[in-house]
């Protein structure tokens, strides 16, 4: 069994290194979330021709830190008629669901917390834990808006998991593995080896390239819906539901929901990066290829996808509930089935 974890290689496999491997992505998530919040504030400002935060630190870069400190200091309110136990547990379960997906994300050739063969299947499976956390929070708040938001959120998550899973499954047909590290290794070389462009192979693959690009777009749209981001943020739709499932939450527990949302945004960006955009591989063959560059490329690509999510959030208006369901079941699902069949045909002919 080859070790793919540089920490195990340096320090041996014991309780301490296992804890380190578990904690390392957490540190990444905390720093990344601060950067992503700043990016969100600044991007929204530029799109709306504002300056955004400018006072906290030079060019406003300390704004997310200030916001987190503010949220931690705030009074933690629990509604009198809420179910205390479930109300307090919900933010942790939502964050656990988002964070547990990091267990299989390969940050580099030499760092992936776990190397299980079922990486992609696992990510789809743990996605449902956050859905349950959202229902828990929405129900325990004892508030109609929260309940409505939670129901919408789960309905949306379940509906869009289907096209997302079919899109990923089509690529699994090409790779014939669900191990994220293996999928990365297949895409080594120039950028035309990425599964966005049909994966490795001779020029005979040209006729499936349009379909892999469509699959990538389907996955991206479904991922936006799964993270409850605009244009699919009907669970939080301010004009209809105040703030959706986290209406009653304040202070640190609200911050937990917030962090979970940003962590999940990175999870879907990481899957997109790994499956379609070559993961930690450099786009330019052997140039800038290697373990250290791997971390750079992975985070660079992942963050670019997060930036596109932010960009879309501030550009498009929100869908109605029926439009959302229509798009998921009647447009994305049939298209993804067609792409799945065509890619299966290609693999059979090859």
């Amino acid at each position: 069994m080859e070790s793919i974890n540089f920490l195990y290689e340096l320090l041996g496999k014991n309780a301490l290194t296992i804890t380190l491997v578990v904690i390392l992505p957490l540190g990444f998530v905390l720093i990344y979330a601060l950067v992503a919040i700043l990016a969100e504030l600044k991007t929204s400002a530029w799109i709306q021709e504002r300056l955004g935060p400018m006072r906290t630190g030079p060019w406003g870069i300390l704004q997310p830190v200030a916001e987190v400190i503010k949220l931690i200091q705030k009074e933690d309110i629990t509604p009198a008629k809420a179910d205390k136990l479930l109300y307090n547990a919900a933010p942790f379960i939502v964050f656990t669901g988002a964070y547990s997906a990091f267990a299989v994300i390969p940050f580099s050739e030499y760092f992936a917390p776990s190397r299980i063969d079922l990486g992609l299947f696992y990510i789809f499976a743990v996605g449902s834990i956050s859905a349950l956390g959202i229902v828990m929070g929405g129900w325990a708040s004892n508030n109609k808006y929260s309940m409505m938001g939670a129901m919408r959120s789960v309905a949306q998550l379940i509906s869009y998991e289907v096209p997302a899973a079919i899109a990923i499954l089509s690529i699994v047909v090409l790779t014939s593995t669900m191990n994220l590290q293996e999928i990365n290794k297949l895409q080594t070389g120039w950028f035309w080896n990425w599964f966005l462009f049909g994966g490795p192979g001779t020029l005979a693959k040209w006729w499936i390239v349009p379909f892999t690009i469509i699959l990538c777009m389907i996955y991206f749209i479904a991922a936006l819906a799964e993270t409850n981001r605009l244009p699919f943020d009907i669970p939080e739709g301010e004009s209809e539901l105040v703030a959706g499932f986290h209406t009653e939450y304040s202070g640190i527990k609200f911050a937990m929901f917030f962090f979970a949302e940003y962590a999940y945004m990175f999870v879907v960006a990481a899957i997109l990066t790994t499956v379609f955009l070559g993961g930690w591989n450099s786009p330019f063959g052997n140039l800038m290829q290697g373990p250290g560059w791997g971390v750079f490329w992975f985070i660079f690509k992942g963050f670019s996808v997060v930036m596109v999510q932010i960009w879309i959030r501030w550009t498009l208006p929100r869908f109605r509930v029926d439009q959302l369901m229509y798009l998921g079941w009647k447009i994305l699902l049939p298209i993804s089935f067609v792409c799945f069949l065509i890619i299966s045909l290609y693999v059979m002919l090859k």
Binding site: L118, F124, A125, S128, I129, V154
Partner: peptide, 13 residues
């Protein structure tokens, strides 16, 4: 993982 997917993601929901 099938247990997680089916029982938690499907039946429990």
């Amino acid at each position: 993982i099938t247990q997680l997917m089916l029982y938690i993601g499907g039946i429990l929901v």
